[in-house]
Simulated scan of single mutants.
Amino acid sequence: MLERVGPDGELLFGSQFHKFGGFGQRTKVALRAETLRERVEHFVNWASQLAHCLDRPHEVIPPDPHGALGTGRFRRTLAWHIARRPGALIALEVQYGHMRTAVSAGYASRSRDSIHDLLDIETARATADTLATLAADRAAGSGMSGPVARRAILAAGQAPAFEGVVFTARQARKLLTNPTLAVHDNPNAFLTCVYNPDKALCQLRGSQETPSLGRCVSTCANIARTDQHAAQLVLKADELDKQAAGGLVPGPLSERLRDHAVGLRDLADKHYRERIALSEAPA
């Protein structure tokens, strides 16, 4: 939408094409931070008023106890979604690695609170959360399967080191460049990626620092699954079977849904056959 507002080659938020009441400056200058902050607040008010008009009070945006949203908090929210929601609407299923480059390249490097740093920090936090979840699964007696199950278990053993850590950009980069801690949860694919770029089937480039979580391949050598992932596979298969039997989809599509459900159950069965009890694995 922003690309259609202004002509080709112009800034997405160029002041010349986003100035209310007429054109702004003739040179390539972006809207000022103060103007963008005002626009964000105007949007919040507009969205809440529209929710009231449509009799949808549950969609009203409540007053924020921390004050105005501002561009800084908006950028942190964007970084959170990119780092933690592979294949989500915010990324439109654009591959994870490309999204980091596409969003952050260019403008951010000039800012002290760069989007590069925000993405690194949020990705590090997501990695720490994944390690903590694996450690909790181990304490609960869960199991793990897959080519890199033991690597994931060893990485989970370092989870206590990150409890309560408020990451700085430098700490985040140190964690993300540690190959023994390159653990990325992908709930959309029902798996955990213990990333090794030399074996990654999601790779589109020769030197990709992070996995493309929107392009996970079930036969990849970087995959590990937990009992929770296996249970989610079965639930998804049940959902697909219900869609196929509901009489609302054409016959060929119904068959594809059933075939997909069978494939998901096969993955779950394989997990339970090959699982390693986390409590039995070396720390």
Rank of each mutant, 00 (worst) to 15 (best):
A108C: 10
P65W: 09
G251N: 04
A91R: 10
P179V: 11
L154F: 05
S109I: 08
N196L: 07
S207M: 11
M99T: 12
Q228P: 00
T226W: 07
I276Q: 13
G72H: 15
A268M: 07
S114G: 10
G97Q: 09
S218F: 09
I115P: 00
R85I: 07
G141W: 05
A237S: 12
P160W: 04
W80V: 04
K28H: 14
L201H: 06
L89S: 07
A159T: 03
F13M: 12
A149S: 14
T35D: 08
G164H: 09
E34G: 04
G70V: 01
S218Q: 13
G263F: 01
A200R: 02
R138C: 08
A108W: 11
E34Q: 12
L54D: 10
S104A: 15
M99F: 05
R205L: 15
K236E: 14
V234L: 13
R37F: 08
N178A: 11
A33E: 14
R173P: 02
P65G: 08
A128W: 01
T77H: 08
A128P: 01
H42L: 13
P65F: 11
T101F: 12
A152E: 06
Q203N: 11
R215I: 04
D137G: 10
I276Y: 03
R76S: 12
F13A: 07
A30M: 07
P179R: 11
G21H: 03
T192Q: 07
H184I: 01
H58Q: 14
S207W: 09
A155W: 04
T71F: 06
G246N: 06
D129I: 01
Q158M: 07
K270R: 14
M144Y: 05
V29A: 13
L253G: 00
A83V: 02
R112C: 01
L12Y: 12
P252N: 08
A156T: 04
Q95S: 10
L134F: 08
F43A: 15
K199P: 00
G67F: 06
H116R: 08
A132Y: 00
D266G: 13
M1R: 07
P86H: 02
A68G: 07
P197G: 08
A105D: 14
G251H: 05
P160M: 03
C202G: 03
A135Q: 08
D259I: 00
F20A: 15
R100G: 01
N186I: 07
L176N: 05
P86C: 03
F167K: 03
I115H: 14
A237Y: 03
A149N: 04
N188Q: 05
L175Q: 05
Y195M: 01
E38C: 01
G24P: 01
L118C: 08
N222S: 06
C193L: 01
R225V: 10
V44M: 06
S104C: 11
A149Q: 03
A149E: 04
H184Y: 15
E38V: 09
R215W: 11
R173E: 14
F167P: 06
R170S: 12
D120C: 06
G6I: 00
L267H: 12
E239W: 09
P250C: 05
R110S: 12
V60C: 09
L134M: 13
A155C: 12
L191F: 06
G246L: 04
V5M: 13
A172P: 02
N188F: 00
T168H: 05
